[in-house]
Design a protein around this nucleic acid. Structure first.
Lengths: 189, 189
DNA sequence: AGTTAAACGGAGACAGTCCCCGCTTTTCTT
DNA sequence: AAGAAAAGCGGGGACTGTCTCCGTTTAACT
């Protein structure tokens, strides 16, 4: 699975430049930033971009793997500090916040939890699912999470909460509230 | 607000043709169906399409107002048959199902509950909010819905549930489940 | 230095959006 | 009924974005 042959020097250089340009462009214009423009920013031809990243999704993934990995690590940090139930909620909160804050991350996380997505098991999907499994399993052990939900359900619902929050003007400020409505339920407590 | 002058005969004819073509195209290709193609199907020039419907959103709205109105009426029908709490849930279920079933409806319903949307208070937004207000109010009276949620919150969360369901392959079959996770909460009952 | 294979780049085919403005159709007037 | 004014039509074309193809360049290895 790993790079069998080392990349040629110019290829490696262009790859990195493209990632940098992509991060800028996605941050500036959202997930639909023009790909040709990204190539231009990076100072390479568009052919080079498409050779390295055959689809927008591939570029998005490469651009944000580190963020996704960071989320995976956060899961474990949080798990050390809080009880399993609290840890799950707090992690989901962070996932939602990133989803709404980091432009372009949303579609990536979305396709990571989509059934039958073209892209077979991307690195991002794997990371997220693994982290969710750990937290969900622990919370169920503890008895603070229903046993009839799967990790993937939780991830999808978190994505839904992020989407709902985004619909409000100050998206971020609604995340906590909407997430707690999900965890506590809409019935009066 | 109503049409001050009656439309010219040809204008009216083209308007209707466009709506019919749009319904077909959106059903076939989703909300991003080509507008020029819709004009072609309708047998009119693209200028005519853009004159009647300045934005994709406007066309989407005109295409689906009747569906939205139907949802508004369903709210009242359901309210007659079930207790307030059950009625709200059942209505939300139908909203979610339509959202996932009718291609193109999603982005319309989404922008209807978006804060600070360009389009000031569209007919769709008004209908949905009014229906939600009735059901939410009744359920809160009855005591089966938290008092700290607004109708708009409920609509947004329903949109989130629809989004989450869509991420699963057989979108429709997950709606009931995800909606009940929202109403009951993720904690064990 | 020479050879080779990998990588480059940007022109260009294609598709979609949307506007502009000369032309046609309808409607109004007398 | 005929002519004028108003309303509406439509499609050409500018523009933007995607993505591929293939002649040219360049790194890597002798």
């Amino acid at each position: 699975m790993a790079q069998v042959k080392p990349m040629r020097a110019d290829a490696r250089r262009n790859y990195e430049r493209l990632l940098k340009a992509a991060a800028e462009a996605f941050a500036e214009h959202g997930e639909n930033a023009s790909l040709d423009d990204i190539a231009k920013r990076a100072g390479v031809g568009s052919g080079t971009l498409y050779r390295h990243f055959p689809t927008r999704q591939a570029l998005l993934e490469a651009t944000y793997v580190d963020r996704i990995e960071a989320l995976g690590e956060r899961a474990d940090e949080i798990a050390k500090e809080l009880s399993p139930g609290e840890a799950l909620v707090e992690w989901l909160y962070e996932v939602c916040v990133r989803t709404t804050e980091v432009r372009g991350l949303k579609s990536l996380l979305g396709s990571a939890v989509t059934d039958g997505s073209r892209v077979e098991l991307t690195a991002c999907a794997t990371h997220m699912k693994a982290a969710a499994e750990r937290l969900v399993g622990a919370a169920q052990e503890e008895g603070t999470l229903r046993r009839d939900v799967e990790p993937i359900d939780v991830l999808r619902l978190a994505h839904g909460v992020a989407t709902a929050s985004e619909l409000a003007k100050g998206g971020g400020s609604h995340v906590r509230r909407y997430l707690s409505l999900l965890t506590e339920g809409l019935r009066p407590g």
